[in-house]
């Protein structure tokens, strides 16, 4: 019995160490976002909220934020919508090549984002499209689609098939049964998928970096400030983004559990 508890103690310690390593940078970021010093070195000077004010008044950050919001909301909207139909046909119908299509829809998951970005840029610029926010939205949709399809088909496969069959035998059309049976029972999953794809698209940096030239998104703005001389306002943005995505993420998790 002794060796057993020894092992458990070791595991407790390991868990604590890993968790603190994961949270240490986040903690440092939050603490420094209130530090009045312009340089990111100890000791901590005075408490200030001026970095937050800077962020909320700086036109470049505001522009990045608006662009990011526009792109990620349209990405999550279209990805969720498309994923809903894909998941519906994957779950509810049997056709030749279904399992192939199933794997095909998930392939973007195993392709690094940098490859999605780079090859889309090559391809679309050779077709005469200029890099723009619209292309960013396309690229990011490719990247979030597999997640959305996985989530939704997971939920849909739990809906009893005979509900829909009952509707059909009572004379309802396929479209109507989809809207009146499947859609309401996927309600929470749909919202959760929307939030999930939104947070992923909002945070995504490398695809956006390749696919836009002049109109930048927030992650690109953060990145450029990081590489070209540091701006302490980034800690403030990081904190805001962290808290928002954490809240959204928790909400989407709760919605998934609720079904």
């Amino acid at each position: 019995m002794k060796s057993f508890s020894l092992l458990n103690n070791f595991l407790y310690v390991l868990f604590t160490i890993i968790v603190s390593l994961i949270y240490l940078p986040i903690l440092v970021m939050i603490v420094f976002s209130f530090n009045s010093s312009k340089y990111q070195i100890m000791p901590f000077r005075n408490f200030t909220t001026s970095w937050y004010q800077r962020v909320l008044t700086d036109s470049q950050y505001i522009e990045g934020l608006t662009n990011s919001l526009i792109v990620s909301i349209s990405v999550s909207f279209f990805a969720t919508l498309l994923a809903f139909f894909c998941a519906y046909s994957l779950v509810n119908s049997n056709f030749k090549g279904k399992s192939f299509l199933n794997i095909f829809f998930l392939t973007p998951l195993v392709v690094p984002l940098i490859l999605i970005g780079i090859s889309l840029r090559f391809y679309l610029t050779s077709r005469g499209y200029e890099p723009s926010l619209f292309l960013v939205a396309i690229g990011q949709s490719i990247f979030v689609m597999p997640l959305a399809i996985l989530n939704l088909s997971n939920r849909m496969s739990q809906i009893p098939k005979n509900l829909e069959e009952a509707a059909w035998s009572l004379g309802s059309s396929r479209l109507r049964s989809m809207f009146e049976i499947i859609l309401p029972s996927c309600k929470f999953s749909l919202i959760a998928t929307f939030i999930l794809t939104f947070t992923f698209a909002f945070d995504e940096f490398i695809i956006a970096y390749f696919l836009t030239n002049f109109s930048i998104t927030l992650p690109i703005k953060i990145w450029t400030s990081l590489v070209t001389g540091f701006d302490p306002a980034i800690n403030a943005i990081g904190t805001i983004v962290f808290l928002t995505s954490l809240t959204l993420g928790l909400i989407s998790q709760i919605l998934f559990l609720k079904k």
């Binding site: 986040i26 070195i41 940096f205 953060i222 980034i234 990081g238 954490l246």
Partner: peptide, 29 residues
């Protein structure tokens, strides 16, 4: 607890490590 930071910007977390690990960072301080 373990996976919640998935929702934070990967870039900013990497940057925070810079602050901690650099030669004038938190660890040496």
């Amino acid at each position: 607890i373990l996976v919640a930071p998935f929702w934070t910007s990967f870039t900013i977390r990497a940057f925070s490590w810079q602050l901690i690990l650099s030669d004038k960072g938190l660890v040496t301080w």
